Amino acid sequence: MRVVLTGGGTGGHIYPALAIGREVTERQPGSSLLYIGTSRGLESRIVPEQGIAFEDVTITGFRRSLSWENVKTVVRFVQGVRRSKQLLRKFKPDIVVGTGGYVCGPVVYAASKLGIPTLIHEQNVIPGLTNKFLSRYVDAVAVSFAESVKYFDRCSNVIHAGNPCASAVVHAERDRGFASLGLNPGTPFVLIVGGSRGAKALNDALTEMMPMVSNLPQVHFVFVTGDRFYEATSLQMKQLPSTIAKRVHVVPYINNMPEVLSAASLVVSRAGASSLAEITSLGIPSILIPSPNVTNNHQEPNARSLADAGAAEMILERDLTGGLLYSHINAIMGDSARRSLMAHASRELGMPGAASAIYDQITRVNRKR
């Protein structure tokens, strides 16, 4: 099978596309992949590192207010469609799969106009502008959250498949996660992650909270700061009493996140769609602090979906303090029955077979054409 993947700007669009690509090559060895993104997005670095052929188009997003930039975006879109048609005619894909982000627009639209089968995947509860626009042209839509289906009424073929990133973590080895942190298997720990670059609000709350954790003497804390906050946070944690400091593990980044995640007793995290897919696939209880600095505030509906199901607690960033974060962590880690109920609810939401479901949809769409 020859598949074009497109989507970019953030890892939330890129990693689902790569997960779909992996599923295709595993199910059909010998398949060929081409990724079309922008030269300025993260995909221009991440995709070639995965050994996947990469081509770029130039496109920018629409602004939500009247702006001369929107006229320029229309011009770039037309040029992007023209460039995409050239790339598609050359590669001759069996299907084009888009996972959102502005670059997805001209590529998927061009494919539909060339009569090439198309599928888009939406990661968040509230769809992005690009995917809503494309839904009237594509052959199929796959969504991560059941609540998203209603937003794609212009497409007759919509499936609730889950997020393909969930499929990548199901075989993670817990013992290797403990070992990589220098912890004995079964040690209860709270994994605190502020995203790939870290989050100042979460960093400040954690620093404020740490002197309070003496009431949880058996619990360790693993804080992934991001590079920019690592040095300052490490210095602050070294000033804690030794009884607490020895239970605090500060790292800038975790390379084996699936293994560490599978070993965690509780996760404190932003509410990016890929992260939530991994958390629920493993059935981990969580405290979610959605970022307010994302398009359309899409992380808050993501977090609310888990909170409403009993799988997570949600704290809005404007309410976040060290004391409030501690009270939530203490309530969950101090009550094994509650933690077990949250884990069960999380697992009920998990869709570890998401990549396989999307692959099956791809093959169905391809056969119909």
Rank of each mutant, 00 (worst) to 15 (best):
C104V: 07
D56A: 15
R76P: 02
S67D: 11
P285K: 02
P301F: 11
F229D: 06
T10P: 04
A277V: 12
T130W: 07
I315T: 07
T58A: 13
N131E: 08
R27C: 07
V96A: 10
L5Y: 05
R136L: 10
F54Y: 13
G51K: 08
N163Y: 08
L129H: 06
R154Q: 15
V24K: 03
A166T: 11
P252E: 05
V97F: 09
N255R: 14
R228V: 14
V71N: 05
H171Q: 14
V81E: 01
M314Y: 03
L114F: 03
V143S: 04
R364E: 08
S39A: 15
N255V: 10
I14A: 03
G350I: 07
V222I: 10
C165T: 15
V193H: 00
Y359T: 05
R364K: 14
A205D: 00
L88V: 07
K90H: 13
P185N: 12
S180V: 06
V213G: 00
I284C: 00
T25E: 13
D139T: 10
P211I: 09
F77S: 07
D153M: 08
Q50D: 12
V219K: 05
A307W: 06
T295P: 05
G12T: 11
A311D: 03
T38S: 14
G61S: 13
R22I: 04
R2N: 13
S286E: 02
Y35G: 04
T130N: 09
E173Y: 06
S242N: 12
H249S: 02
I126S: 11
S291R: 03
I284A: 03
V170E: 10
P285R: 00
V193T: 11
N302E: 11
A205T: 09
I254W: 01
E23I: 11
S262E: 00
G323T: 12
H121A: 10
A263G: 04
G101F: 04
E231G: 06
A311Y: 04
N330G: 04
S291G: 12
